[in-house]
Amino acid sequence: MPDRIRTLKLSLAYLPLAVPISDAKVLTGRQRPLTQVALLFAEITTEAGFEGIGFSYSKRAGGPGLFAHAREIGGDVIGEDPSDIGKLDTLLVWAGASVGRSGLATQAIAAIDVALWDLKAKRASLPLAKLLGSHRDAVPCYNTSGGFLNAPIEEVLDNAAEAVERGIGGIKIKVGQPDQLADLARVEAVRSSLPESVALMVDANQQWDRGTALRMGRQLEPFGLVWIEEPLDAYDAAGHAMLSARLDTPIASGEMLTSVAEHRALISQNSVSFLQPDAPRVGGITPFLRILALADEAGLKVAPHFAMELHLHLAAAYPGEVWVEHFDWLEPLFNERLEIADGRMLVPDRPGIGVSLSDQARAWTVETATFGG
């Protein structure tokens, strides 16, 4: 007999950050500093007693919208077979298709989709990576959370040294300041402080135009960067393709895209060497796997954005070269911690994604909705 979904619980929580965070979008006046992250959690139980947990997120704005959209359509999964993840993805996408099949709508669906995959892996008593068909038990990792522009360079250097001491294999810092000489000085200071074996990446957060990006890319060549991330607007596939063709340093992008179709545009125009999809942003694991298939066919390297607790499993299941992003921001939400050694993040052997919500996550919850019973 097939199992059936008995209950779905949705929760909206706000994770406060210790200090306001700024990247180039703040310094150029496009956004205000980041002070909190909104989390949408989905918890599913079945008639046979299995449980799954998933999450999505939004920064600066959008949390209430994610919760509202998920609450409006989430009840449609009650009574359905949780194994039919593809069917349920289609059901939820089309339930809200009038507001689009990307953006906030897919990000709301993502929490439910991830919970279904977590449940499926738990029912098989396998880590999610093993269920998907892993290619490795550990993934090279780099730290981002220590390299934001609100931190003075001395703090960035201390953060980088601490990350390397913990066993992290790469450091990414933010660039894209109005003063491009300050960017170059920042990169030089970090590169000179790191052992040669430690990788270095930079992220401009979409703040350059094509001419500036080309000039900066050429000036950054001597530093041997693993990649330059989001040098241009995220939707400028042609511009990224131009940079990829004219620079030796690889180009990375994709984190801001919210659909398979948007990633297909980057891939088809040879815009990037590193594709950076984000499962919560594209609608969950189901569409993320479609993106991985496209990336693999194109021979691209993959470095999923943020949410290491989830993306570690997905990166481990990719056959090509991968990196996973170390961001410690979400750690207070979960009872478990990921292990790092020799520059790599180890895939946990716990079933499913391998996380459970902490008491702190429950305390930060501001709204819930439950379906079924």
Rank of each mutant, 00 (worst) to 15 (best):
residue 266 L to T: 02
residue 285 I to T: 11
residue 298 A to W: 13
residue 272 V to E: 06
residue 277 P to I: 00
residue 275 L to K: 04
residue 299 G to R: 06
residue 264 R to C: 03
residue 278 D to E: 13
residue 285 I to E: 01
residue 283 G to I: 02
residue 268 S to L: 15
residue 292 L to Q: 15
residue 263 H to M: 04
residue 274 F to S: 00
residue 258 T to K: 02
residue 278 D to L: 00
residue 269 Q to F: 00
residue 285 I to F: 08
residue 288 F to R: 02
residue 290 R to N: 09
residue 283 G to A: 10
residue 284 G to A: 00
residue 295 A to P: 05
residue 284 G to K: 07
residue 282 V to A: 08
residue 281 R to F: 11
residue 267 I to S: 07
residue 265 A to L: 15
residue 266 L to M: 05
residue 268 S to D: 14
residue 298 A to F: 10
residue 277 P to E: 02
residue 286 T to C: 00
residue 273 S to H: 09
residue 269 Q to P: 01
residue 264 R to F: 13
residue 290 R to F: 07
residue 266 L to K: 03
residue 282 V to F: 07
residue 281 R to L: 11
residue 279 A to T: 07
residue 291 I to P: 02
residue 297 E to I: 12
residue 274 F to W: 15
residue 269 Q to D: 13
residue 275 L to N: 02
residue 274 F to H: 08
residue 280 P to I: 03
residue 275 L to S: 01
residue 260 V to N: 05
residue 271 S to P: 10
residue 298 A to I: 03
residue 276 Q to K: 01
residue 295 A to V: 01
residue 281 R to E: 12
residue 258 T to C: 13
residue 291 I to H: 07
residue 270 N to E: 11
residue 264 R to P: 06
residue 282 V to N: 11
residue 258 T to E: 10
residue 272 V to N: 09
residue 290 R to K: 15
residue 275 L to I: 12
residue 279 A to S: 09
residue 295 A to W: 08
residue 278 D to R: 10
residue 295 A to Q: 06
residue 293 A to Q: 14
residue 289 L to R: 11
residue 279 A to C: 06
residue 267 I to H: 07
residue 285 I to M: 00
residue 298 A to S: 07
residue 284 G to H: 08
residue 261 A to Q: 12
residue 290 R to L: 15
residue 289 L to G: 04
residue 268 S to Q: 14
residue 263 H to N: 08
residue 280 P to L: 03
residue 261 A to K: 05
residue 283 G to E: 06
residue 268 S to H: 13
residue 271 S to F: 08
residue 282 V to C: 14
residue 298 A to C: 12
residue 282 V to M: 11
residue 295 A to D: 02
residue 268 S to N: 14
residue 289 L to C: 10
residue 281 R to W: 14
residue 300 L to D: 07
residue 288 F to W: 11
